[in-house]
């Protein structure tokens, strides 16, 4: 049996990778993947806790997160395609028309 804190440390590392990627990357698809990474890091800790406490609610939450993530991926990718079509770039720093 793998101890709980192993999962949690892995989950933390995944989440930190996601945050770092979100902060430093400019490519919008990479940022999107970083967000997925953070979501999955959280999912991992949910599942770990659910297994540890023998509570199903954690796993139910994970399903919800996956559903939302799937929906988000669908909408997000559609937006990315739309952005690429109009701006011909995926660099977020250049998508700044709304900025003052």
């Amino acid at each position: 049996m793998v101890p709980l804190h192993y999962y949690l440390v892995l989950s933390g590392i995944l989440f930190a990778c996601g945050v770092t990627g979100f902060l430093i990357k400019r490519n919008i698809i990479t940022i999107f993947m970083s967000i997925e990474l953070m979501l999955n890091g959280v999912n991992l800790s949910f599942v770990a806790f659910a297994a540890h406490w023998h509570a199903l609610s954690g796993q139910v939450f994970v399903f919800f997160v996956m559903v939302v993530a799937a929906a988000e991926a669908a909408v997000g990718l559609a937006i990315i395609i739309a952005v690429y079509r109009t701006r011909e770039t995926l660099n977020v720093d250049k998508v700044n028309l709304l900025k003052l």
């Binding site: 945050v19 979100f22 902060l23 430093i24 977020v92 700044n96 900025k99 003052l100």
Partner: peptide, 12 residues
């Protein structure tokens, strides 16, 4: 600043 990533940085 209007820079989204710096906001994210503050949040983090």
């Amino acid at each position: 600043s209007g820079n989204l990533r710096s906001y994210a940085g503050w949040i983090a």
